[in-house]
Design a protein around this nucleic acid. Structure first.
Lengths: 208, 208
DNA sequence: TTCGTTTCTTAATCTACATTAATGCGCAGG
DNA sequence: CCTGCGCATTAATGTAGATTAAGAAACGAA
């Protein structure tokens, strides 16, 4: 079932970032062609790191096939996963992409993946030729802020189990695809704790 | 010492949001006058709530005098402070201000305060007349994203004591002004835990 | 001032999650 | 086909911070 989905995506009709512009007719055919000229396709092997902490990156990645993640490594050497990006998601370190600040994040591939790379220059170009798209971009930033805000509130107020529930709603396609220890890392708990969480709740369900 | 600071701010030369436009000469005198026409000044009494969860607000507030905060109340009735806004800070629920989403946050005043109110319409106006300011706004959003991102990483990886250290760096002027229990709420711990934290570390310092 | 309320602190107990460690499984490479 | 290593699970023990409770200090309103 998940496999057939993967196969579909492996064709040339994989999702593209341009899909979000087309339906609204925000860009002329000529402009779309221009965008095409700036977008490049990149294949990334499982485990390849495409951004490292401290680097100044200028690119964002739209995931066509596969799955990427962004994460930090703290002083004690511990990984903390910031987000996952399965098919259709965009991943980048916004602050290093839009300004010249060194990145706090690493980004790598959890599976063999294919992405559309768009450079800072493309963002600038596209925002210059279309005010609507410029506004769309701003709106995306605002939505991102709302998401981060909710995550903070969640980290402050919710138990590990509640956060796990929320994770499964946010990333239904991820749960079976990535190692448990990474889900634990995203939730801010240890793999052992997640394992316990899951088994305890399975038991609860069986009782009812 | 803090008092004299307060007195200075009580005069008409209090900081204004326009200060951030003037030095860059981004707006003509006429345009500044136009902005003036849209900005209103609001006095808020300690304890007054100017935004409630579920409301659709269209305003942001630049703090001239005093201190505001934004916070949520979770299912169990517990408050979680999201940010403080002393003099010079802007506070709002960005997602409700820029879209029509109902707010997740409450905003109220921790002291008698004076703010500059700017409506969504002003943001639109100002961004329409000045592309530079439009870009400045976008950059502010990006910086905000970076701040939220760091806070998430901090909540996932740092101990309560480390978070307290970071809080004091971020809000040096706040520590003596707001109740401890609110600082605890911002840090995501109980007032009792914060009290212990502080006394334990004082002892540590004395040992050395 | 005085009284009532809120806030801060200290201390005892409790709990969610971390740490450590041992076991078994699945899978990639020789 | 083994062999080894990363991963998941389980269990024992440890600990940061929550909860509960109670007393002291600070604060606001009459």
């Amino acid at each position: 079932m998940e496999n057939s989905l993967l196969h579909n995506n492996a064709h040339s009709n994989s999702p593209s970032i341009k899909d979000s512009y087309r339906p609204l007719q925000l860009l002329s055919a000529q402009q779309l062609a221009l965008v095409d000229a700036f977008i490049t396709i990149k294949n990334i092997k499982k485990g390849d790191i495409i951004l490292r902490k401290g680097e100044v990156a200028t690119k964002a990645y739209f995931v066509r096939i596969g799955c990427l993640r962004s994460y930090t490594i703290d002083d004690k050497g511990k990984e903390h996963i910031f987000m996952f990006a399965p098919e259709g998601w965009i991943i980048s370190d916004i602050s290093t992409q839009m300004t010249d600040a060194p990145s706090d994040l690493f980004i790598d591939a959890l599976e063999d993946s294919q992405v559309e790379v768009f450079d800072r220059r493309l963002s600038e170009l596209i925002r210059a030729i279309s005010p609507q798209i410029n506004n769309m971009t701003t709106e995306k930033f605002i939505k991102r802020i709302a998401v981060l805000q909710k995550r903070i509130i969640m980290l402050m107020s919710a138990t590990a189990w509640e956060r796990y529930q929320h994770f499964m709603e946010t990333y239904p396609s991820i749960v079976q695809r990535v190692p448990q220890r990474m889900i634990a890392s995203y939730l801010g708990i240890t793999p052992e704790a997640l394992s316990k969480l899951r088994s305890d709740n399975t038991k609860l369900k069986q009782k009812k």
